[in-house]
Design a protein around this nucleic acid. Structure first.
Length: 268
DNA sequence: ATGGTTGCGAAGCAA
């Protein structure tokens, strides 16, 4: 039995609940990380997800963020935030152990404009995430850090680099911060299987950006080597961006086999 | 043409 994990910024779970339930029904993920639920814990529809077969942990205060993990393969040792001494800037991190894998669902701050207070807070936040991961986990453990990173790792993750000249999501410091996380021992599961450009996880609602293929790949599933070696397939589900009331992000998915793949050593 | 879209919440801000 392989495991299917997905991560999805739903841009308000209240507005998106029907789409999320529909997606769960046809995609049948074993583990689903959510970001931007925009709700407080008290109204999180844990009972609805329970009826669909999922345990859940939600971390939200009703503000603009809010993160969750759903799992039908166990959900143990939940933890909210990055420890008491770290300012989360809302509710942006939640973790749990699912079927032997530690899963961290993250929503990195947007940063707004390069040079703004929010931009520097974003960079600080990313450094805090790196410290949190490094202090709590090992590159040799089974760990997945997934969510909306609000950083396009490379130029091929952006539809037009000219348009984003001097903008957030592509600036050198943001990319270097993300690279710090990778060099600690995390791997971008999707990118390692698809080297081509034009594959995005987010499109602006405005101006028909989705249909013009004007997007960015900012939603990532990062895995330590032991998990990466089990990854047989990865996908970003463009169908989720179509139809009535879509989120501006789509789910990113990985399939994990029970045992390492035969060619795991060739991955890096 | 200094715009556009969505969500939240009831005007304007954040993404």
């Amino acid at each position: 039995m392989s495991l299917l994990l997905a991560t999805w910024n739903v841009n308000s779970l209240r507005a998106r609940l029907e789409r999320v339930l529909e997606w769960i029904k046809y995609a049948e993920p074993d583990i689903l990380c959510l970001q931007e639920t925009k709700m407080s814990d008290s109204v999180f529809p844990a009972d609805v997800f329970r009826d669909a077969g999922y345990k859940s942990i939600h971390h939200g205060d009703g503000g603009w963020n809010g993160v969750a993990i759903l799992s039908r393969v166990g959900l143990d040792d939940p933890e909210e935030g990055m420890g008491e001494d770290v300012d989360e800037m809302g509710c942006r991190v939640v973790s749990a152990s699912c079927s032997g894998i530690r899963v961290v669902s993250v929503y990195v701050p947007n940063g707004r404009e390069v040079g703004s207070r929010f931009y520097y807070e974003k960079l600080d936040w990313m450094e805090n995430l790196k410290s949190y991961i490094a202090q709590h986990y090992s590159p040799t453990s089974s760990l997945l850090v997934c969510g909306d990173f609000n950083v396009a790792p490379d130029d091929i993750d952006v539809w037009d680099t000219q348009v984003f000249e001097g903008a957030t999501h592509v600036s050198k410091p943001e990319r270097e911060s993300l690279n710090g996380l990778l060099s600690w021992g995390l791997f971008d599961c999707f990118r390692l299987r698809y080297p081509q450009s034009g594959l995005y996880s987010w499109w602006d609602y405005r101006g028909g950006a989705f249909h013009k293929h004007q997007g960015m790949r900012i939603d990532l599933i990062l895995a330590t080597k032991p998990v990466l070696s089990r990854c047989s397939f990865s996908l970003m589900d463009r169908n989720a961006r179509k139809g009535e009331k879509p989120s501006d992000h789509i789910p990113v998915m990985v399939w994990l086999e029970d045992v390492p793949m035969a060619n795991a050593d060739s991955e890096s």
